[in-house]
Amino acid sequence: MKSIYLIVLFLLVGCGSHKINNNLNSENDAFAEESFMRFGNARLNKVSNKDFLAKSLSRCYNGEFKTTLNDMQKEIKSYKNKSKYWLYIGICYQLYGSQLKANYFYDYALSGSSLIKASIYNNKALVALKSNNYEGAQILLEKAIKLSPKSKIPKYNLAQVYIKFNHLEKAKNLINPLVNKNSNDIDLIFSIMTIEIAQGNFQKAYSWSKRFNSNDLRREDISLYVALLYYELKKYKEAKSIIGSQRPTIIEEINSATQVITKKIDIELKKIKEEQERRESKKV
C-alpha cells in the first residue's frame, strides 16, 4: 500500500508541475535585472563567474544548494560586510525551503540599503503568499515598494494580490507602467490580460492574449485564463482547445479552477451541440 502511494505521488510529481514554469528569454524578461527566478537553466548557467555573489545565487536557482552554500561559507571573510551576501544566502535558503535560516540571514541583510531591505520584504511576502497570508503579504509588499519605488517586482507581486482580491484598478495602476516598458514579458501580458478579463474588457483582453504563442498557451495559468476569456467571448471550442492543451499541474488553485471552467465549457458546448442537433432535426 505504501509503495503504491509512493508511486502515485511520484507520478503526480513527475507528471505534473508543482510550480508554474515561467522561464523567459532574456529579451522578454522585464525583471531580468531584478530576479533570477524566471531565468531557466540555460540562462542561469550563462551567469558570469566574475560576480561571485550573482553566480552563487544563480547556482541556488539551479538547485545547487549544498555546494553553493558551502562555497559561500568559504567566502564569508570576503563578503561578510556586504549585505548582498547575507541576502543571497537568505534567498538560497528560502529556495531550499529552510525559511527559518533564510530569515536569520535576512536579518543580517537588513542593515543594508533600501534596495536590500525591499528584497527582504518582497521575498518574505512570497512566503506569506504561499501560506495564503495575503494581508501579511500585502503589508510586506507595500513596505518593499516604499523602500524601493523603482523596483518593478514588488509592484508586480502586489498587483497579483490585487488581481486575486478584485482590486483591479490598483492592480492595473501597478501593471500598466511595467507592461508598457516591456510588452514582451509573458507574465506582464498575462497579468494585464487577466485584469481586463476581470474588468469585463474582453476585447482588450483578447488583444493581449494574441501575444501568447502556442507554447505560452500550454502554461497552466495562461491556458486557464485564456480559456476563460474565450468562454466569456463565447468561443467555446477555442476555449476547449486551449484548456485541453494545458500542461498538467498539481497546483490546487489552477486544478480546481480548470475543473470549474472545463465544466462550464462542456455545458455550453453541449448546449450548442443540442441546439445544432435540434436545428438539424427541424430541417429534416
Partner: peptide, 24 residues
C-alpha cells in the same frame, strides 16, 4: 458572475517573483 469562481482562485503565490536585484 461566473468569473468570480475562476478569479478567486488566481494563483498568486505561483506567479509572485523573488526580488534578487542581482543585476542592479
Amino acid at each position: 458572475d461566473f468569473k468570480s469562481e475562476i478569479m478567486m482562485r488566481y494563483p498568486v503565490s505561483q506567479l509572485a517573483i523573488s526580488l534578487d536585484n542581482q543585476g542592479i
